[in-house]
Design a protein around this nucleic acid. Structure first.
Lengths: 255, 255
DNA sequence: CCGCTTGTTTCGTTAAATGAAACGCATAAG
DNA sequence: CTTATGCGTTTCATTTAACGAAACAAGCGG
């Protein structure tokens, strides 16, 4: 045991994360992924299964369990970003009458952790839990404010072309990230999906790091330039309000 | 080690659940609650803290962490009840134009695990993660289909009177549970909050157990008897559709 | 029918995890 | 101001709980 870490618990968490990342696989493969022996993996998985942290999705594959769901829901009520964001997202949604999302960095992805949708018939559909690459579309806003070292790891040399408007090279993306940092928001016109426009604004924490981004996503055909500007303004203001609620205060501190 | 349970992991889960149930308390109190020594609790908590399963909410208190949030969100995308319920709840919400919820039993409470809200100005506000007692209002629907042994543990002899319409004794509640089982749904008129009407219908799993309930909640003043009947009909049908999606099939099996 | 997977079980070994007690540091009480 | 009591943290010697390797059972495909 090094430095107060209980290794079996640590390894159990490794396995849990592995199950989350790729469900419906068995003991052997999970053991391989996490670098533990098969018998150890079996015992740790068995322990978590008894407690419903994970469950069997078939006779010999695992997935996250019901206890995990309940704990996660409880976590969302205990987590400031979510608790404070919810009313802000709902108000923003109502004002722009389009779908809005809250995203954070998880691994190499932008993970949607909250959303609000207007009830108009034609709207972009959002899903809590859905992941998007950080290097294309409005998720770039989240990426732009991460440490350069992380950015370098994220952005591929040859980003896959999702649409005709997807940035075509690493250099272009890095260029855009600079622009995003300068102007304080990000706009995407069909970079991820055709006929879809989105914009995003950063949410700052106490230490001036960006912990999340607020996104507005809309069908391209009904967003003219002037409307887009309007949306950007209120989205940015919503993000600022959330930042302040998290304890951040505007200042021009040189880092 | 008994029966393939890794005790340190098991105890870590105990602590995790304790943190979830009552956040913002310290090592000593958590150790007491879970029946482990202070040093053990400290090490297990420290291990989970490093992995962001939990985090400090102050210098010496704990709460659920960001990894927990992400795992929970991932779990919700992997869990059938949620995945299948979401579109059904949204359609139901649109059709009744009122707030709808999905609830499950957790501990002694009815826990809201999903919701959909209409965008009309006056509506009942719902919150994923909010808990309600099982013995009053529409949550009784969830209770009615649990094992009798569990019901007996849940229902207090003298239930606290939340409003003038809260059932006043254990006997009355047990009577109502029988009625709910018979008619297959539950109606509450101001049992939990004045001026609030709700109804609920059970969602069945393969084994005919009730895994969740679908609730419709509305301001009392705009729900006449005939509207209520209409709401009950489509709520019940939504619950049935969800049951079938989960693999349940209607049958008159004597237990 | 055999070989190659799985997941599960056994068992002896050992180091990882533990409990008790000490420590330092607060705040509260005397 | 001093003492007492509570907290979180650290230490250390002890031992038991967790481990790895190997055997086992069961399923599948060739």
């Amino acid at each position: 045991m090094q430095d107060y870490i209980v290794e079996s618990v640590d390894k159990a968490i490794d396995l849990l994360m592995a199950v989350a990342r790729k469900p419906n696989i068995g003991v052997t493969e999970l053991a391989k992924k996490t670098g533990v022996t098969k018998s150890r993996a079996f015992r740790l998985l068995h322990t978590m299964e008894q407690r419903k942290i994970i469950k069997r999705t078939s006779e010999s594959t695992y997935g996250l369990g019901e206890a995990m769901l309940v704990l996660g829901i409880t976590a969302s009520t205990q987590t400031d970003v979510i608790r404070l964001a919810t009313p802000i997202l709902e108000e923003l949604c109502q004002r722009v009458n389009e779908t809005v999302q809250l995203r954070i960095v998880d691994g190499l992805d932008a993970l949607c952790i909250a959303k609000a949708e207007p009830s108009r018939d034609l709207r972009v559909h959002a899903n809590v839990g859905r992941r998007r690459p950080l290097y294309a579309g409005s998720p770039k806003c989240l990426l732009a404010f991460q440490p350069q070292e992380f950015i370098d790891r994220c952005v591929p040399l040859k980003p896959p072309a999702l649409t005709a408007h997807t940035p075509k090279s690493r250099a272009v993306i890095l260029e855009e990230l600079i622009k995003i940092r300068r102007q304080g928001y990000c706009v995407s016109r069909g970079e991820v999906s055709d006929h879809q426009v989105s914009c995003a604004a950063p949410v700052f924490a106490l230490d001036n790091s960006v912990v999340a981004t607020i996104h507005v996503v809309a069908p391209a055909f009904r967003i003219r330039e002037s409307e887009l500007e309007h949306i950007i303004r209120i989205a940015t203001s919503a993000a600022q309000r959330l930042s302040r609620a998290l304890g951040w205060s505007e200042e021009e501190t040189a880092v």
